[in-house]
Amino acid sequence: MPDILVRHIDEALADRIKDIAREHQWSINEAILFALRRGVGLAPDDAQRELHDIAMLSGTWESTETAAFRAALEAFERVAGKPLFSDGPVGETQTPK
């Protein structure tokens, strides 16, 4: 496979590439290849479908927002002693067994 050197990448582009890599847990090289494939229309079907996703149309979370949301979800998963939801009528909670 050939190697290509890209020069004069501005800070905004470099930061976005790093964000993509972090969000997908990819290397910087993988993120750059992904961006290049999408940019020239060679992305796999999954990536093309992603363009029509409602999140892509309305905007996406920054990596810090994604991390905060995941941390909040993990906190709920670790709650012990009381159920988060009840199977009974509204206002009633069931005693854990």
Rank of each mutant, 00 (worst) to 15 (best):
55 A>H: 13
52 H>D: 15
52 H>V: 07
13 L>Q: 08
64 T>Q: 13
36 L>C: 11
67 A>D: 15
38 R>C: 08
31 A>V: 06
14 A>I: 03
54 I>M: 06
37 R>I: 04
19 D>A: 14
40 V>I: 14
55 A>N: 14
39 G>Q: 05
34 F>K: 08
21 A>Q: 10
59 G>S: 06
26 W>I: 10
16 R>D: 11
60 T>Y: 02
43 A>P: 07
18 K>P: 02
42 L>I: 06
61 W>P: 00
39 G>F: 00
64 T>S: 15
58 S>N: 14
44 P>F: 05
15 D>C: 10
27 S>F: 02
50 E>I: 00
13 L>N: 04
44 P>R: 10
57 L>Y: 01
64 T>I: 03
25 Q>H: 12
57 L>M: 06
32 I>T: 08
36 L>D: 03
35 A>S: 11
47 A>L: 11
33 L>D: 13
20 I>F: 09
14 A>K: 14
22 R>L: 10
20 I>V: 15
31 A>S: 13
55 A>Y: 08
45 D>L: 11
52 H>F: 11
61 W>V: 05
60 T>V: 14
63 S>A: 14
41 G>Y: 06
19 D>W: 04
27 S>H: 01
63 S>E: 09
44 P>T: 10
66 T>C: 01
23 E>G: 06
20 I>W: 09
21 A>Y: 02
59 G>V: 07
18 K>D: 15
38 R>N: 04
13 L>G: 03
49 R>P: 02
66 T>N: 12
30 E>K: 15
63 S>I: 15
32 I>C: 05
27 S>D: 02
41 G>W: 03
34 F>G: 00
37 R>Y: 03
37 R>C: 03
65 E>I: 04
24 H>F: 12
40 V>C: 00
34 F>R: 10
